[in-house]
Amino acid sequence: MTIKRMDHVGIVVEDLTAATEFFVELGMELLGEGPAEGAWIDGIVGLDDVRVDVAYLRTPDGQGAIELTKFRSPLAGTAEPSAPANTLGLRRVMFTVDDIDDTVARLQPMGGELIGTVEKYGDSHRLCYLRGPQGIIVSLAEELS
């Protein structure tokens, strides 16, 4: 048996609206949002009395997706929201964009904070890390050729 595809990345957030708006401004399409609760979700996540609000977003090419989840019950645990990029665990999500400077400029008023600087990688890409809502690190790449 082989993997058919990677379906989506799940991100737990406190402010679902702000996180959704951030990823929509990045260029993702909001496919759906709403609540989920019941025995089926309790069983999946291994917690009792789970009540969540979820937003599901897709990249314009239809190949990647993000599921943003706000836990209403039980409340989400806390993690260091500004953990550095070398912290163990899932740390970032990368997107290829048309214009990295424009993307950074559009996301900064929404709380996007450039972690370092925009750098050129050889002759192929310009790259940067941007911290978004709840400390989510978004890596951006602009193809140069």
Rank of each mutant, 00 (worst) to 15 (best):
P35I: 01
M6Q: 08
D98N: 15
E80W: 15
W40V: 07
P35A: 05
E29H: 06
V50N: 00
D15N: 12
T20H: 09
E37T: 03
R58E: 14
S73N: 12
R51D: 00
A36Y: 06
V104Y: 04
I41C: 01
C128P: 01
L31S: 08
G116H: 04
M94P: 09
R51S: 00
P74L: 06
E67Q: 05
D53R: 07
G89Y: 04
D123E: 15
T96F: 14
G32A: 09
S124N: 09
G10F: 02
I44N: 00
K70E: 04
C128N: 00
T17W: 10
L30F: 00
A76P: 06
L30C: 06
D48K: 09
P84E: 02
T59M: 13
F23D: 08
G27D: 11
E37N: 01
R106K: 13
H125R: 12
E80G: 05
Q63D: 10
R92H: 08
D42T: 02
L88G: 12
G32P: 07
G64N: 14
G27L: 05
T78W: 03
F22T: 13
G111A: 03
M110S: 15
P60C: 13
F71Q: 02
D7I: 15
I66N: 00
G38I: 05
G34H: 03
L75P: 13
I44W: 01
S124Q: 12
G89R: 00
V24S: 06
I115E: 02
T117L: 10
G10S: 07
P74V: 01
E80D: 07
E67L: 04
G122K: 11
D48W: 03
I41W: 03
R58A: 10
L127Q: 11
E67I: 00
L114F: 03
D61R: 14
D123L: 13
A76R: 15
A83R: 15
G34T: 01
I11M: 08
R72E: 13
V97Y: 05
G111E: 09
A76E: 10
D98K: 12
H125D: 11
I11G: 01
A83Y: 03
A18V: 04
G64S: 15
P84K: 01
G62P: 11
G77M: 11
K4R: 13
T96K: 15
C128E: 00
N86T: 15
V12N: 04
I41P: 00
L114T: 02
E33I: 07
C128K: 03
V45R: 02
P81N: 07
L30R: 06
L26Q: 07
D99G: 07
E119T: 14
M94C: 14
T103V: 08
L16H: 04
D98Q: 15
R91M: 14
E21H: 10
C128D: 02
E21W: 02
E33C: 14
G46R: 01
L68S: 06
A18K: 13
F71M: 08
D99A: 14
E21C: 13
F71H: 10
K120D: 08
I66C: 05
Q63H: 10
I115W: 03
T96H: 13
A36C: 05
Y56S: 06
R106L: 11
Y56N: 12
Q108P: 14
D123G: 12
